[in-house]
Amino acid sequence: MSTAANIVIAAIALLHLWFLILEMFLWTKPSGLRAFGTTAEFAAQSKALAANQGLYNGFLAAGLVWGLCLGGGAGFHVKVFFLACVLIAGIFGGLTASRKILWIQALPALVALVLIHLT
C-alpha cells in the first residue's frame, strides 16, 4: 500500500503543479480559459487573484513532494497535513465554485489519506 499511496500523492503533487501553471501563467490564454470555463474579460480582471491562488497550489505541491522526500517515518505527518489541506480546499472549492473540484481535488486527496493510513 505504501507504494500505491506514494504514487497517488505524487500524482496529486503533479496535479497541483499543473494548477499553478494554469493559474499563474495560462489564466488568460486559451488553455486557461477552457480549463476554468472563463471569459477573456473575466480572466483579465481576475488575473492577479488567479496568480495568487496558483502560488498556493504550488505550496501544496511542494509540501507533498517534501513529504515524499522525507520517506515513511518523518514524511508521514507531512503527507497527512498537506493531503488534509488539499482535501479541505477541494471540499470548499466544490461547495463554493464547482462540483467538479470535489472529483478532481478532494477525492484523490481522500484516497491518498486512506491509503497512507492502511500502510
Rank of each mutant, 00 (worst) to 15 (best):
A51R: 13
A51P: 03
A51F: 12
N52Y: 04
N52D: 08
Q53N: 07
Q53I: 02
G54R: 00
G54L: 00
L55G: 00
L55S: 05
L55N: 03
Y56P: 01
N57H: 04
N57Y: 02
G58P: 05
F59P: 00
F59Y: 09
L60P: 00
L60I: 00
A61D: 01
A61W: 03
A62G: 03
A62L: 10
A62C: 05
L64S: 00
V65D: 07
W66R: 10
W66D: 09
W66Y: 09
W66T: 08
G67W: 00
L68I: 11
L68W: 03
C69D: 10
C69N: 10
G71W: 14
G73K: 12
G73M: 13
G73T: 14
A74D: 09
G75V: 08
G75M: 05
H77W: 15
H77F: 15
V78K: 05
V80W: 05
V80A: 07
F81W: 02
F81E: 01
F82H: 02
L83W: 12
A84T: 06
A84D: 02
C85L: 09
C85P: 01
C85S: 05
C85A: 07
C85Y: 02
L87G: 11
L87T: 10
I88T: 14
I88K: 14
I88Y: 11
A89L: 06
A89S: 11
A89Y: 03
G90E: 06
I91M: 12
I91Q: 12
I91A: 13
I91T: 11
F92Q: 15
F92D: 09
G94S: 06
A97R: 06
S98I: 11
S98G: 11
K100I: 15
K100C: 13
I101E: 00
L102P: 08
W103F: 14
Q105I: 06
Q105A: 09
A106G: 15
P108M: 07
A109R: 03
V111T: 08
